[in-house]
Design a protein around this nucleic acid. Structure first.
Length: 158
DNA sequence: GCCAACGTTGGC
DNA sequence: GCCAACGTTGGC
C-alpha cells in the first residue's frame, strides 16, 4: 500500500481515554477542540478515512500508546467553534468560512499492552519519531508506517 | 506542581 | 517584520 498513512493522536486520559473511545456508541468520537493550525492542516489536508492511528495517552504516568484507532470520517467544521458556551468557542471564526475542523475517530482495539514513552525512546527502530522529541507538543502527528508497525510489534512482546 | 519548549499575540 | 510577553502543552 503505497499511500498508507499513519498518525498519532494525543489525549489526556483524565479528560478522554482510549477506554472512553471504545465505550462510545459505534466506538466513534468527533475529535473536536483542536486549536492548533498545524494539527488542523493535517486533519484537513492529509488525513483520509481509514488512516491508522496510534492513540496516545499524554500527561499521565507514564505517558504511553494505549490503543489503535482509525479515521472514520473526513474533516468537517468543528461545531464547538460556534458555540459561545464552549471552551473551544472562537469568536473570530465565520460560519461561512470556518477556521477549525475535526475528524471522526473510531476505536479499533487496545494494544496487547501499553507501550510507554520510555520504551519508544529506547527503541532502535523509532529514530526520528516525533513523539519522542523533547518539546514536541503537536497533538496530531504523522507517523512513518514503519514506525507504526514497530510500535505494534513492541506491544506484542512482553 | 514545576518549568522547558513552543505557538500566538500585539506593540512598535 | 521583529520580538517580548503571554498562554499552553506535557514530561518530569
Amino acid at each position: 500500500m503505497s499511500d498508507r498513512r499513519c498518525w498519532l493522536m494525543k489525549s489526556e486520559p483524565d479528560a478522554f481515554s482510549f477506554d472512553d473511545l471504545m465505550s462510545r456508541p459505534g466506538r466513534r468520537e468527533p475529535w473536536d477542540g483542536v486549536r492548533n493550525y498545524q494539527a488542523r492542516n493535517l486533519m484537513r489536508d492529509e488525513m483520509r478515512v481509514g488512516d491508522e492511528v496510534l492513540f496516545y495517552h499524554s500527561r499521565c504516568t507514564p505517558p504511553h500508546v494505549a490503543g489503535i484507532a482509525r479515521i472514520a470520517g473526513p474533516a468537517r467544521p468543528d461545531p464547538t467553534q460556534f458555540e459561545p458556551s464552549s471552551k473551544y468557542y472562537d469568536a473570530g471564526s465565520k460560519a461561512d468560512d470556518p477556521r477549525w475542523v475535526l475528524v471522526d475517530v473510531e476505536g479499533v482495539r487496545p494494544l496487547e499492552r501499553p507501550v510507554s514513552l520510555d520504551e519508544l525512546k529506547a527503541s532502535p527502530h523509532l529514530e526520528g519519531m516525533l513523539v519522542i522529541r523533547k518539546g514536541q507538543r503537536l497533538s496530531i502527528q504523522p507517523v512513518d508506517p514503519a514506525h507504526y508497525d514497530a510500535v505494534l510489534a513492541m506491544a506484542q512482546t512482553p
